[in-house]
């Protein structure tokens, strides 16, 4: 990242984007100080971001994308329409992928706070198939609007995943 560049941090629950200097130390400090909080959605912040940034830039979306693929696509479409280069990092924990719980116990939705008694063994396979279908749908949707989409498993080293992503992006850039 060049020193003259500006970077913005956008939280899905924030009322407006926060623009910070592009110095890496500042950006990193602000990024690491972020904490998950209230429930939010992608559509509102990204639409505001599209209005806010008239210039073309690189927009990195880091999200668990717990939303309908069509809604996500609807959220990113204005940015993509304005020519922004979008990179989507889909961050998922292995438990979110595999749902490897054994005991029946209450589950709490971190966004809504809703609690639900769940017997994991009873529907693990069904959950996995839904997650796979969701990832596939996101992959297809982002590919359709030329958004670089990468699913990152938090159990795997981040540098490996980024290296892999960057390698594929450089190839794509040559094609583009």
């Amino acid at each position: 990242m060049r020193s003259t560049a500006w970077a913005s941090l956008v939280g899905s629950a924030w009322p407006s984007p926060q623009v910070v200097p592009s110095r890496r130390s500042v950006l990193a400090r602000r990024a690491f100080s972020l904490k998950p909080g209230r429930p939010g959605n992608l559509k509102g912040p990204l639409h505001k971001l599209a209005e806010h940034f008239g210039r073309r830039g690189v927009l990195v979306i880091v999200s668990d994308f717990y939303d309908d693929p069509e809604a996500i696509l609807d959220a990113v479409s204005p940015l993509r329409f304005r020519g922004q280069d979008l990179i989507a990092f889909h961050i998922l924990d292995p438990t979110e992928l595999e749902f490897g719980f054994s005991d029946a116990q209450p589950f709490e939705d971190l966004e809504s706070g809703e609690q639900m008694p769940v017997v994991p063994e009873a529907f693990r396979e069904e959950y996995r198939s839904l997650v796979r279908a969701h990832i596939d749908a996101l992959t297809r949707s982002f590919a359709g609007v030329r958004v670089d989409y990468t699913m990152l498993d938090t159990s795997k080293p981040l540098d490996h995943a980024l290296y892999k992503y960057l390698g594929s992006r450089s190839k794509m850039m040559r094609i583009r």
Partner: peptide, 22 residues
């Protein structure tokens, strides 16, 4: 013990009988 889970979006989609304790 309550499991704090990022989202129960998929859990909600699964039919009620198979999700809830029988």
């Amino acid at each position: 013990q309550i499991i704090r889970f990022p989202s129960l979006m998929f859990v909600r989609r699964i039919p009620y009988q198979s999700v809830r304790r029988r």
